[in-house]
Design a protein around this nucleic acid. Structure first.
Length: 219
DNA sequence: GAATAGATTGTCT
DNA sequence: GACAATCTATTCT
C-alpha cells in the first residue's frame, strides 16, 4: 500500500514558532531520492525564537551566512552541523525578519525503512533509526545540501498524511544548558504516545518500584 | 541502565 | 583557537 502525503502550505509555517512546533507533531517528513521515497512521522520538535532566545543561533539578531535563511520567509529548510559530524534539520517559521525555526528531533519511520537502515550503516532496531536529530538526517539522507530548500514543494517536504491519535507533552529543550533561563522554557514538544521520541517528555509516574528490592540471601 | 570519553569540522571571536 | 541545538562505543553496575 502506498501512503498519501500532501505538502503543507506556506501558511502553515507563517505562524508563531511555538504554534508551528506543536502543530508539526503528527505531520510527515518526506524525502524522494533516486526514485525511492522515505517518510517519517514527526514525533518530537523544538522551537527556537530569535532574536531574544539565547539558545537560538539567531540570538541577538545575529545574521550570518549560516543563519540567513531564518530571516527570510517561512517554509524553507535550515540545516546546520553540530560537533563536526551531525546535521540538524529545521523548518523556518514566522514572518520575514523574524529569525525563528523549529528543529525536528525525532521521527517514526513509516516508509523506506530499509533505505534508512542502510544509510544508518549498521543493523539497528527500528527505534534507533530516527530517534534523534542527527540520526534522522542520516537515515533520511538529508545534509547541508538541503539548506534553503522550499519545503512546500519538491523532493523534500513536510506533509500532512494519515492522522493518528497523539498526546502532546512539553519539556525543556535538550542540549542548550548554556542558554541559562531560556534553557528551562518548555519549548520541546513530543508525542507521548510514541516510542520513537529521543527521550520521554517527563519521567514515568513514580509508582511501584521498577525492580524488586534485592533480597538478602539467607542460607 | 548510567556514566564517560572521543569523534571531527563549520562557524564565530 | 574555542566551541557546538549529537552520537557511539566502552566500561561499570
Amino acid at each position: 500500500m502506498t501512503l498519501s502525503f500532501r505538502p503543507l502550505p506556506r501558511s502553515f509555517y507563517a505562524r508563531p514558532v511555538l504554534t508551528v512546533a506543536r502543530a508539526l507533531v503528527g505531520t510527515y517528513l518526506v524525502h524522494e531520492q533516486a526514485g525511492a521515497r522515505m517518510a517519517g512521522r514527526v514525533v518530537e520538535t523544538e522551537a527556537y525564537r530569535g532574536p531574544e532566545d539565547r539558545a537560538a543561533h539567531s540570538y541577538g539578531g545575529r545574521r550570518t551566512a549560516r543563519t540567513e535563511v531564518m530571516f527570510g520567509p517561512a517554509g524553507y529548510a535550515y540545516l546546520f552541523l553540530v560537533y563536526g559530524l551531525h546535521w540538524q534539520f529545521n523548518v523556518v517559521t514566522g514572518r520575514v525578519g523574524e529569525p525563528e525555526a523549529v528543529l525536528i528531533r525525532a521521527l517514526e519511520p513509516v516508509e523506506g525503512v530499509g533505505s534508512m537502515a542502510l544509510r544508518r550503516g549498521k543493523s539497528r532496531a527500528a527505534r534507533e533509526l530516527t530517534n534523534g536529530p542527527g540520526k534522522l538526517c542520516q537515515a533520511m539522507g538529508i545534509d547541508g545540501s538541503a539548506y534553503g530548500r522550499d519545503l512546500t514543494s519538491g523532493s523534500l517536504a513536510v506533509c500532512s498524511g494519515p492522522t493518528r491519535q497523539r498526546s502532546i507533552g512539553r519539556s525543556p529543550r535538550i542540549g542548550v544548558a548554556y542558554a541559562g533561563a531560556w534553557a528551562k522554557r518548555p519549548w520541546r514538544f513530543c508525542d507521548d504516545l510514541s516510542p520513537y521520541v529521543s527521550r520521554p517528555s517527563a519521567p514515568p509516574p513514580a509508582a511501584a518500584p521498577q525492580k524488586p528490592a534485592k533480597l538478602a540471601r539467607n542460607g
